[in-house]
């Protein structure tokens, strides 16, 4: 940062006002964010349980035991597998949907742009719990709109949320519907930054739509795609409300997510040490995933 830009002298009064301006936010973030993060890390090496909740003298350090226990916990592996299934499927599909919508909306041929943009974006702002409830009825095996619609194509009713095979795809579909509008807006902003002349020049050289997309749009959109990829990854790994409302993690744990498992262990059974270890595994995964994406883009 160019310090000569800050000519404002921090005289005697300024130091006091600096503290007044900065400390409320900083203290709040320190006490209610950073200290809990560190405490959670420490907690993950203890056997903090319902007994410790009553009397903190019961807390014992148990080293890496919680993490070893996770390794042998079949339910944790199921939650991990389900969450990866969700992120790896819903993530790319949602980004493809966002990019497609953004390109369609950026075309000169599109009419009623603001109407379309608005309706694509509407699911993003609405309350997740409420729309999950709506979708739960849309997925109803007998009376739901989706099965009714599919019946026109001769597809017999599917028990979307009651069948272990279909429950996760149903949640994925709903999550894409809910989220694609967000990334779409970011892609639209990215597309606006691509100079029109590039496309004109390519047209003169006889490039078709696919060539232009492949050689101009995609490469120039790479920073946007990276950003979108990382925030989608971070958001999707925190999957919770959709399965909590629509399936409660079932059937047969087929939609149990990491966050839901963490919630159950920590706040239903009060195995808080164990739950903290789950939270840190989640953090490690999100962190690694973001780093991998950054590295991949740098190597391009």
């Amino acid at each position: 940062m160019n310090s000569s830009k800050y000519k404002y002298d921090s005289g005697l009064g300024s130091k006091k006002s600096l503290i007044i301006f900065l400390s409320p936010a900083l203290l709040a973030i320190l006490i209610f964010f950073f200290i809990p993060v560190i405490s959670a890390f420490i907690m993950s090496f203890t056997d903090f349980s319902i007994y410790a909740l009553a009397d903190w003298n019961y807390i014992q350090f148990i080293g890496l035991d919680n993490y070893f226990r996770l390794f042998d916990d079949p339910l944790f592996w199921i939650a991990l597998k389900n969450t990866f299934y969700f992120v790896i499927t819903a993530g790319p599909l949602s980004i493809i949907a966002s990019l497609t919508a953004a390109i369609l909306l950026s075309s000169k041929l599109t009419a009623f742009k603001s109407f379309f943009r608005l309706s694509f974006f509407l699911p993003v702002v609405t309350t997740l719990v409420a729309v999950a409830i709506v979708w739960r009825f849309i997925y109803h095996p007998n009376f739901g709109l989706l099965n009714y619609f599919l019946s026109y194509f001769g597809i017999s009713p599917i028990d979307w949320l009651g069948d272990p095979v279909w429950a996760m795809p149903a949640i994925i579909l709903m999550a894409i519907w809910k989220s694609f509008g967000y990334n779409m807006i970011i892609f639209i902003a990215g597309l606006q930054n691509i100079p029109e002349q590039l496309y004109e020049a390519a047209e003169i050289e006889g490039a078709n739509s696919w060539h232009k997309f492949h050689h101009i749009t995609l490469p120039l959109l790479a920073p946007t795609t990276l950003f979108v990829g990382i925030i989608t990854l971070i958001g999707f790994f925190q999957l919770f409300a959709e399965p909590y409302i629509m399936t409660q993690g079932g059937p047969l744990n087929s939609t149990l997510s990491i966050v839901q498992y963490m919630y159950q262990e920590g706040f239903r059974w009060w195995n808080m040490g164990y739950s903290a270890a789950i939270a840190f595994v989640l953090f490690t995964i999100i962190f690694t995933g973001s780093i991998i994406q950054l590295k991949m883009k740098k190597n391009d």
Partner: peptide
Amino acid sequence: MISLKPKPILLNLLLIIITVITLTPFL
């Protein structure tokens, strides 16, 4: 801006289909 080749009708039809999908649950 990108000028995709497909005819305006097709493009707008696609947008209408997506709109129907996004709005039906609300309606």
